[in-house]
Computed example of a mutant assay.
Amino acid sequence: MPELNDHCGHGMGTDLEAKDWININAEDLKRIQPYYPVLQGEMDIIWHSPRPFSSASIIRSAQGEFLLKRSHHSFRSVADLQQEHHFIAHLARKGVAVPHIFSNAQGRTATALDDWVYELYEKVPGEDIYADQQSWKSFFVAQHALHAGKALAHLHVAAADFLPDQSRITQYLISNQKIIESSSILQAFADRIRQSPALSKYFAQYPVSDDFLALLLRLQQPLLAQFPKFKKIWTHNDLHASNLLWRNGSDQAEVAAVIDFGLADLASIPYDFAVAIERNFIDWLALDQGNDLHIDFEGLCAFIRGYVRIGENLEQLDFVSDILPLVHIDFALYELEYFVEITRNETHAKAAYAYLIEHTYWFVSAQGQDFLAQLQRIIHARGEHV
């Protein structure tokens, strides 16, 4: 397996691989420097992120250290990123620990240059102790999961009055509940594919089975009457261990900041809560070795205990176990579309398609059904493993 270095990063499995996007380099710094007063003078690049979907680096100038993020214009625009940044700024005003985003000389928090769109963030004091950790891996200790639960609850409370009737303007690489909340999940699934040339072409070559479509329909039935009752709020939709920064590197460390709102969109508390469970406590990366997956029940219980200490509308959590089998559906199509159309990475597209199918089927396996029953009991017990 390749070692983690400047040219390898996280992919769709456990192995490191060549990055889809080249690292930020001296040419990027030269190009972006005139737009940000805090970047004047000599600059150095001191770290490259291994995470996918964009390029991000810690840079140092005479004024301090910053995180510079660069995304391709094919899936991110200044207008879209400013909408994301408005959400982050709203959370900051409500007391959520999030990084400050610097405006350029034109007063915008995103800068388009040539084929790229740049964002400049403060480097949050604290430690990125999960920097090398793949998504879909558990917290190192349950105490971290407890503090992550608190952080998500604080975010949901703060987000309650942010643009509840306005969804994300971008149509690329976000996460939401649009398909699974539809009155006709099969029609919504088909429409989503039909509206995307990339997905239309891919599913024409690799159609899903009638059995899979029947499964979607069956899994949605308990939710049809519930989704209209959930208050729509903007949510993070990707809260996992490596999207949190920590006050120190100890087992008792508290969250210093919530980062990476790239998948944020209008959804609901139970949706975002289910996403967090799916991202953190089930070892999906071992799914290709069989259906018997490791589940971090200790961390899961701690996460729920942390959330219920601060969260509101806790009765909505009672439906998380019903949402969980479908929570990956909408994002899976955004992700597959990104790999087919934007990066044109056939290996990643194949993996994303497999995750779409295999994640869903796992929840109706013996272990998946047992997990959902246990999850429901744990939620009812507010985080106690019963």
Rank of each mutant, 00 (worst) to 15 (best):
residue 2 P to H: 13
residue 2 P to S: 08
residue 4 L to C: 07
residue 7 H to Y: 13
residue 9 G to L: 06
residue 14 T to K: 15
residue 24 I to H: 06
residue 26 A to W: 09
residue 29 L to A: 07
residue 30 K to C: 10
residue 34 P to A: 01
residue 37 P to D: 15
residue 40 Q to K: 15
residue 40 Q to L: 06
residue 42 E to Q: 15
residue 47 W to K: 12
residue 48 H to M: 08
residue 56 A to T: 08
residue 56 A to K: 11
residue 61 S to H: 09
residue 62 A to R: 11
residue 62 A to T: 12
residue 80 D to P: 02
residue 80 D to T: 09
residue 83 Q to W: 14
residue 87 F to Q: 08
residue 91 L to V: 02
residue 92 A to E: 10
residue 93 R to Y: 04
residue 95 G to P: 06
residue 97 A to H: 13
residue 100 H to V: 12
residue 102 F to L: 11
residue 105 A to V: 14
residue 105 A to H: 06
residue 116 W to Q: 09
residue 116 W to M: 08
residue 121 Y to D: 02
residue 123 K to S: 06
residue 132 D to C: 09
residue 133 Q to Y: 14
residue 139 F to N: 11
residue 143 Q to T: 11
residue 149 G to N: 08
residue 150 K to A: 06
residue 154 H to Y: 07
residue 157 V to T: 12
residue 161 D to H: 10
residue 162 F to Q: 03
residue 169 I to K: 12
residue 170 T to E: 14
residue 170 T to N: 14
residue 170 T to I: 02
residue 178 K to M: 12
residue 190 A to Y: 00
residue 191 D to N: 13
residue 202 Y to L: 00
residue 206 Y to S: 00
residue 207 P to A: 00
residue 219 L to G: 02
residue 222 P to T: 04
residue 227 F to G: 05
residue 230 F to E: 12
residue 231 K to V: 08
residue 231 K to E: 14
residue 234 W to G: 03
residue 236 H to T: 11
residue 237 N to L: 04
residue 260 D to F: 08
residue 272 D to I: 03
residue 275 V to K: 09
residue 277 I to K: 06
residue 283 D to N: 14
residue 284 W to G: 09
residue 288 D to L: 10
residue 289 Q to E: 15
residue 301 C to L: 03
residue 304 I to K: 04
residue 309 R to T: 13
residue 309 R to H: 11
residue 310 I to W: 14
residue 315 E to F: 05
residue 320 V to F: 05
residue 326 L to P: 09
residue 340 V to P: 02
residue 345 N to W: 03
residue 350 K to F: 09
residue 356 L to S: 00
residue 368 G to D: 10
residue 369 Q to W: 07
residue 382 R to P: 01
residue 385 H to I: 13
